[in-house]
């Protein structure tokens, strides 16, 4: 039931943000559509609604946003340098890295973050054994533990505090 209410609030919030017209007709239609969405997909939205009540998770999410933005800008400048350099200095390869995260949301955000930051993107996730297969544009080390240290470690601890 809490899951239904949360998905209703989220849907209604998006409706207001997208229409940005505070007319009662718009709000009424939004209310009806959001109620329908909450009824249709509510149970699927989250399995642990109690996690939404813990404020420390939101603070960690804000900190995560800052870290992610910094890495994203750094990664894009690095990528642009590699593309524009006449010698094309790349050493591509697919490496295997470990992760401690178990939850669906945590793994999804970890994989998405790896895709959007310096020269790496996630190809496949092995949820049972906790492995990610990452394509790396400039392979520094082929060893699983060292690669984990470089690629995953910075995000993993923060994501564990948000989603686990």
């Amino acid at each position: 039931m809490t899951s239904n209410i949360l998905s209703f609030l989220l849907a209604f919030f998006w409706w207001i943000a997208l229409s940005w017209t505070f007319n009662w007709q718009f709000l009424l239609v939004g209310l009806l559509v959001s109620l329908f969405i909450a009824w249709a997909v509510g149970e699927l939205f989250t399995r642990n609604p109690h996690k939404f009540k813990q404020p420390s998770r939101y603070l960690w999410a804000l900190y995560y946003l800052v870290v992610f933005l910094k890495e994203n800008i750094k990664g894009n400048i690095d990528g642009a340098y590699r593309i524009l350099h006449p010698g094309l200095p790349i050493r591509p390869g697919i490496v295997k890295v470990k992760t401690k995260l178990k939850s669906d949301a945590g793994l999804t955000y970890l994989a998405n973050t790896i895709t959007l930051t310096p020269g790496t993107f996630t190809m496949d996730v092995d949820q049972e054994n906790g492995y990610l297969y990452v394509h790396w544009m400039n392979v520094v080390t082929e060893d699983t533990d060292k690669a984990t240290e470089i690629i995953v470690a910075k995000y993993e601890n923060i994501l564990a505090k948000i989603f686990e």
């Binding site: 390869g93 697919i94 895709t115 190809m123 496949d124 082929e142």
Partner: peptide, 24 residues
């Protein structure tokens, strides 16, 4: 990106010949 790369690898698209390693 994840869907395209995984599908390409499963369909047998070979990486570049200078690729260092392919643990997948």
């Amino acid at each position: 990106a994840h869907a395209i790369s995984r599908a390409a690898h499963l369909a047998g698209v070979k990486p570049w010949e200078k690729t260092v390693c392919d643990h997948y």
